[in-house]
Design a protein around this nucleic acid. Structure first.
Lengths: 129, 129
DNA sequence: CTGAATCCCTGCCGATACTG
DNA sequence: CAGTATCGGCAGGGATTCAG
């Protein structure tokens, strides 16, 4: 399926890594890092928007009209810290800021795809419950 | 609506699906469904544990000693609702409950793998920050 | 043994108002 | 234009206690 080139593994399941044995949500755990990057309402929608190209603050607001200015400001800031986004100020007036995905950010595409596929599969064939 | 076959996709990124155009975190969005299943602290660690086989309440407690009884009870309950887990009571005394991944649950393995890979890649090559 | 009920504390998110 | 400051409501989750 859309199993990208994220590296194949000998066996299914989780990798053979010392961090795979943590018994608490350590911030150094790769899974925690990713979930932390995706954390927060609206976050995945902001990423989806930017997967289609650079966006300014106003363009994001237009694409996601329900977001308050605060969240519209917080999400890109958080994502920039997480290394997902690049923030470029365009000199002059009025101020313009362009948000662009970094190479890391672009690699979130397959991750969101994996999330999408699982949710779609569950919807298509709900469990016994 | 979810007319899709989750098969191959013409282009990278997100699928061509009406739900891909929501402008708010709709609960019917597959991505939201998956994130909702993984939602909550400790959740992914519980799933990781169960990816290695069925576990009882006590076995989970032993594997994840830091969890309070409440969370240790809430997480499997939530995951059962989400169709990830199967809960089987063993008759007799003392009461024993076995938690097992459903077929949907087992399919979370690759999803966690994708999350792991992204986090590991970011750690390996941190951004400009 | 396997939880459910309760209490409290914290952090998220929405709304509104203000600034370089 | 692109945010920051502030306030308040509410849900998540830890600790403790109780129940089948």
């Amino acid at each position: 399926m859309t199993h990208q080139t994220v590296g194949h593994r000998a066996r299914p399941g989780l990798p053979d890594d010392p961090l795979a044995k943590v018994t608490e949500p350590a911030p150094s755990c790769p899974v925690e890092i990713t979930l932390s990057a995706l954390h927060g309402r609206w976050t995945t929608l902001v990423i989806r928007e930017l997967l289609q190209g650079a966006r300014t603050f106003t363009e994001l607001r237009h694409a996601l009209p329900a977001l308050s200015d605060k969240v519209l400001s917080d999400r890109p800031a958080h994502l920039t810290e997480a290394g997902v986004l690049d923030r470029r100020r365009q000199p002059g007036w009025p101020p313009r800021v362009h948000y662009t995905l970094t190479s890391h950010g672009r690699r979130l595409g397959p991750v969101l795809q994996a999330l999408w596929d699982w949710g779609a599969a569950v919807t298509a064939s709900p469990p016994e419950s």
